[in-house]
Design a protein around this nucleic acid. Structure first.
Lengths: 229, 229
DNA sequence: TCTGGTAAACTACCATACCAGAAGGGGGCG
DNA sequence: CGCCCCCTTCTGGTATGGTAGTTTACCAGA
């Protein structure tokens, strides 16, 4: 995730870095729900530090659109933005289609074997009900296609797009059945790549990414207060 | 630009907002060159304020990858990131292609007339050597195609992508001749849309966006110190 | 002239205090 | 019982001082 964590800079880790990581994790993992009120003084007291590093962490989280700071008012955990989600999804679809198009025109045997291997690992995780591992392999799968396409730069773009729906995915109750659908799509993608069937590949990519639309609609219906325009 | 300016929140404008806007403008307009060292104390003294709001502005600029802050070391104006530029350009190409594809399948008379009107305004600005106006119309042109495609959300995505090469474009010496090329591309795009010739439209969009590659290469050759990986 | 060591200066980060604006609660009045 | 006003509390923004880490400059010795 191209976030604002200074610690990734391999520099000295500051107190602000620690507070930032802790709060971001709480927000993204939905331990801090949208609408929750926070104050600099409260968080500072909780960690036995001054307001200053807490304030810096708040600012960085505001920049990630995870917190909403206004003068003299309680800071709140921002609801998820429908506009941001829509833009990120459109961006991801566009990028994945372009990556797929390029991958289709240059699949080589080594890359195909790598994809097959990732697919196999996903199947293994499905069979052992390891959903966390399965999702990790999902990222690996898409990254591998980017490499096949010669677009390593797209990996980070896709990662950032996925990050915008992190909180939403936590709310949705993903089960093995829906993961099987995802796996089927992946298998189909690999098949079309092997056949160099570009039109079918693009259709499958569109359908694959459209799956999340239902999830988004469900979560928005069940949790309307967690969203804003 | 989806930036970190709190002032766009229609809330109270703070001192930090003012410093942020001022410094960002200086950096983007290249009045502060990459590598320039800044310090909180120095900027605070310059504006006759305390270090605290300056620090907040620095943090926000760091988040925009315009400043590089490290503990106990002078803050520097970040060089332009080749990786960021590459990602942004790939993103923009992907999004513009998807937008074009959708626009091509649903051009209506009203939208075509709107595009023709924007094209006419661009020609007028070319004829009066108004390059600033011409570039403003460039954004309007691409936004109009997004509307035609029914993808208003893509407007902000494209705007953000363009923002990553703001500084680079300031360094390149754009002239009327290169703007004529841009205008020709735009005219060709409108023609293909009118003919519903999708393949040709996509080819023109690719070529149109590829023009900046030469500009980027030139600026990188002439100003190697302004770039980093 | 070069190199290493040391001291001074520079720097961001953190703590503390003060101020002004916003919100909430309680009391009084109609 | 409801509404309005006032007071208190909560809140972020800003100012100031201190500290620890880094850089730079100067000096001495080889």
């Amino acid at each position: 995730m191209s976030d604002t964590t200074a610690s990734l800079d391999f520099g000295r880790r500051t107190t602000a870095d620690t507070i930032f990581d802790s709060l971001r994790d709480d927000i993204v993992k939905m331990r801090l729900r949208p609408g929750t009120r926070l104050s600099e003084a409260e968080v500072a007291k909780l960690h036995d530090i001054s307001r200053q590093p807490v304030r810096e962490a708040f600012i960085r989280l505001d920049n990630l659109r995870l917190l909403h700071i206004r003068p003299q008012r309680a800071t709140v955990v921002r609801p998820m933005s429908n506009g941001t989600i829509k833009r990120a999804r459109f961006m991801r679809l566009s990028v994945e289609l372009e990556v797929a198009r390029r991958a289709c025109s240059r699949p080589d045997d080594a890359s195909m074997r790598a994809l097959q291997e990732v697919l196999q690992q996903q199947l293994e995780r499905l069979e052992t009900d390891d959903l966390t591992g399965f999702h990790q392999m999902d990222s690996v799968f898409h990254a591998e296609i980017c490499r096949m396409a010669g677009c390593e730069c797209a990996i980070e773009v896709i990662t950032d797009c996925k990050a915008t729906v992190d909180r939403l995915c936590i709310l949705s109750l993903k089960d093995v059945a829906s993961c099987r659908d995802v796996y089927s799509d992946h298998a189909e993608i690999v098949e079309h790549l092997a056949d160099r069937n570009c039109d079918s590949l693009l259709d499958t990519v569109r359908r694959h990414l459209a799956r999340l639309n239902n999830t988004i609609a469900e979560v928005q219906r069940d949790n309307p207060d967690y969203f804003e325009d």
